[in-house]
Simulated scan of single mutants.
Amino acid sequence: MVNDLVFMVLAQGDPGVPSGSEFGKASPVGLFVLVVLIVAVGYLAFALTRRMRRMNRRRAFAEANGLDVFDEQALDQAMREAGLADVDKKRWL
């Protein structure tokens, strides 16, 4: 009799655990957070691709004209003289 009672109490589980038809469903806020994260990752990928293209253009220009790739001032001046427009853009990316 005592063994049956202990078994029934153990089988019932914790009453504080959420259950029911609404348990485990996501809210619209979760979807919004996922969309924002996907947009942020997409923007970072776009910005990195744009930055890498610019760096590759600058490196190719420096190598073609015999300039030091790491001398930014000389490279910027030479690109201005050549008429390339990406020198005057903001450098925040």
Score class of each variant (00 low, 15 high):
residue 42 G to A: 06
residue 25 K to G: 04
residue 3 N to P: 01
residue 90 K to I: 06
residue 12 Q to V: 01
residue 1 M to A: 14
residue 35 V to C: 06
residue 34 L to A: 15
residue 26 A to V: 08
residue 12 Q to M: 03
residue 76 D to L: 02
residue 60 A to M: 10
residue 92 W to F: 14
residue 62 A to I: 02
residue 20 G to Y: 02
residue 82 A to H: 02
residue 2 V to I: 11
residue 87 V to D: 03
residue 7 F to K: 15
residue 35 V to F: 13
residue 28 P to W: 08
residue 15 P to C: 02
residue 25 K to N: 12
residue 50 R to A: 13
residue 90 K to N: 09
residue 38 I to L: 15
residue 2 V to Y: 03
residue 30 G to W: 06
residue 58 R to F: 04
residue 21 S to Q: 14
residue 71 D to Q: 05
residue 93 L to I: 12
residue 47 A to M: 10
residue 81 E to D: 12
residue 36 V to N: 06
residue 77 Q to V: 09
residue 87 V to S: 01
residue 77 Q to G: 04
residue 54 R to Y: 03
residue 4 D to T: 07
residue 64 A to I: 02
residue 5 L to A: 04
residue 80 R to H: 10
residue 16 G to M: 02
residue 64 A to P: 00
residue 9 V to L: 10
residue 89 K to Q: 10
residue 63 E to N: 14
residue 11 A to R: 00
residue 43 Y to C: 10
residue 65 N to H: 11
residue 4 D to A: 07
residue 88 D to P: 02
residue 37 L to D: 13
residue 54 R to I: 02
residue 37 L to N: 13
residue 57 R to Q: 10
residue 33 V to F: 11
residue 38 I to Y: 07
residue 28 P to V: 12
residue 77 Q to D: 15
residue 48 L to D: 07
residue 84 L to E: 07
residue 75 L to R: 01
residue 3 N to M: 14
residue 55 M to N: 13
residue 20 G to S: 05
residue 51 R to N: 15
residue 93 L to R: 13
residue 84 L to A: 04
residue 40 A to G: 07
residue 88 D to H: 03
residue 47 A to D: 14
residue 91 R to H: 09
residue 16 G to D: 02
residue 23 F to M: 11
residue 41 V to G: 05
residue 67 L to M: 09
residue 85 A to G: 12
residue 74 A to S: 11
residue 56 N to H: 09
residue 58 R to A: 11
residue 62 A to D: 02
residue 21 S to R: 14
residue 44 L to H: 07
residue 14 D to S: 04
residue 65 N to G: 02
residue 1 M to P: 04
residue 51 R to Y: 15
residue 4 D to I: 04
residue 14 D to M: 00
residue 86 D to E: 08
residue 48 L to Q: 12
residue 48 L to Y: 05
residue 88 D to E: 13
residue 18 P to Y: 03
residue 7 F to R: 12
residue 10 L to P: 00
residue 80 R to V: 05
residue 21 S to C: 09
residue 46 F to R: 13
residue 67 L to E: 03
residue 36 V to Q: 05
